[in-house]
Amino acid sequence: MKKYEVLKAVVILQAVCMVVLTVVVVIKVFPGNDRFQDRRPQTNAGSGEDLDQGKTDQPLIVDPSKQTDHERVIAKIGQESITLADLEKELYKQHGAAVLRTIMVHKVVELEAEASELSISAEEQDRELAKLIEGYESEDHFYEVMQNQLGMTKEQVLEDLRYRLLLEKIVIRSISISDDEVSRYIADHPEEFEDRVQLHLQWILTDTVKEANSVLQLLTEGEDFALLAKTYSIDSFTADAGGDLGLIDEDDPFYNREMLNTASRLQIAEMAGPIQVDGGYAVIQLIERQITTSMTGRRLHEAVHKQMALERADSLTEIEDELLVKYDAIKTE
């Protein structure tokens, strides 16, 4: 269940991020924006004459310092220019409907939460945030990844988290789950609530044992592991990242069992190999070991109750649609 919750949270963040990135741009092109004011030639007050009258034969010279941001050229292809307006138009065409729905849904969820006197406490937010951060080196590293890979600031991550928690409360408030049902689930699925060990590994994958031993020799002579991974590893997915495999569950079934067993016996910064794996021979290094303690008692009961209720409830999208109807949320254009 814990893995499911973390995966779900990450997927939601990724999905929301796609539209969050375009919100600012789309807002600029909504009707009524001052960037779309009439741009016909101005006239002298009371004269009815165009200010540019008599100058039509002269070339138009545009002072870049007086260009509006909307007219700014952001790219060129030969003699062709692409303006910010062109970009906004394309973004609106591709993502406008999704962004508008996101804004409307956030509004109606806030209204429903206020009407139902639902709120998210700092403790609830911190607990959920801790689940998201599991598997990252630190909280700062988590936010750095969200910024670099998804374009989300810390404030956006926390706001999206608060929104999701509010929506979940709205979804499950009418779902009845007995204490006995929760207790039976915990008893029937003990493996989901055990302590978990994760290994942060780097590896260098080679074609032959001889190449792997050569890499090991260079490492014993003090060569940098990440640099050797970039130079010699045949794993194109990790070579550029210095062979970083990230955090792996100690019993992850998708990784070579001998490699994980070997890694579990290593000390931090210790290396081992060659280890035969699919695709070649690996040299590994343990960067860190993380131990996650499982929930117990009341917190475990509440977490399982919530997850069971979410699994029985209508989808979050259906609830959002119902709230849009309830609060008369409609597109005017």
Score class of each variant (00 low, 15 high):
residue 130 A to E: 13
residue 155 E to P: 00
residue 117 E to G: 07
residue 135 G to W: 00
residue 116 S to K: 11
residue 96 G to F: 05
residue 190 P to N: 07
residue 137 E to Y: 01
residue 109 V to E: 02
residue 131 K to R: 13
residue 93 K to Q: 14
residue 143 Y to R: 09
residue 145 V to F: 08
residue 154 K to I: 00
residue 100 L to G: 00
residue 195 D to W: 02
residue 142 F to C: 06
residue 121 S to F: 02
residue 97 A to E: 13
residue 115 A to V: 08
residue 186 I to G: 07
residue 169 K to A: 08
residue 66 K to N: 08
residue 95 H to P: 04
residue 76 K to A: 09
residue 128 E to L: 03
residue 91 L to H: 04
residue 163 Y to F: 15
residue 191 E to Q: 14
residue 103 I to H: 05
residue 141 H to D: 15
residue 178 S to Q: 06
residue 185 Y to E: 13
residue 204 I to W: 01
residue 142 F to G: 06
residue 129 L to P: 03
residue 197 V to I: 15
residue 203 W to D: 12
residue 150 L to I: 02
residue 165 L to D: 03
residue 115 A to K: 15
residue 73 V to T: 15
residue 149 Q to K: 14
residue 167 L to V: 08
residue 191 E to F: 04
residue 138 S to C: 06
residue 138 S to R: 06
residue 159 E to W: 00
residue 109 V to D: 04
residue 75 A to V: 06
residue 75 A to L: 10
residue 140 D to L: 06
residue 99 V to H: 00
residue 166 L to Q: 11
residue 141 H to L: 07
residue 116 S to D: 12
residue 87 L to M: 14
residue 111 L to A: 09
residue 73 V to G: 10
residue 156 Q to H: 02
residue 70 H to S: 07
residue 69 D to G: 05
residue 97 A to K: 12
residue 82 I to W: 09
residue 197 V to R: 04
residue 163 Y to I: 08
residue 126 D to L: 08
residue 89 K to Y: 10
residue 85 A to E: 15
residue 182 V to T: 05
residue 202 Q to E: 11
residue 127 R to C: 05
residue 137 E to V: 06
residue 177 I to M: 07
residue 184 R to A: 14
residue 80 E to D: 13
residue 170 I to W: 03
residue 113 A to R: 07
residue 77 I to T: 11
residue 119 S to K: 12
residue 117 E to Q: 11
residue 118 L to E: 06
residue 81 S to Y: 02
residue 173 R to T: 09
residue 138 S to P: 04
residue 167 L to Q: 13
residue 181 E to L: 06
residue 197 V to G: 01
residue 155 E to I: 03
residue 138 S to H: 05
residue 113 A to M: 05
residue 63 D to Y: 07
residue 58 Q to S: 13
residue 107 K to G: 07
residue 93 K to W: 10
residue 144 E to K: 10
residue 153 T to E: 00
residue 117 E to Y: 04
residue 100 L to I: 12
residue 79 Q to Y: 04
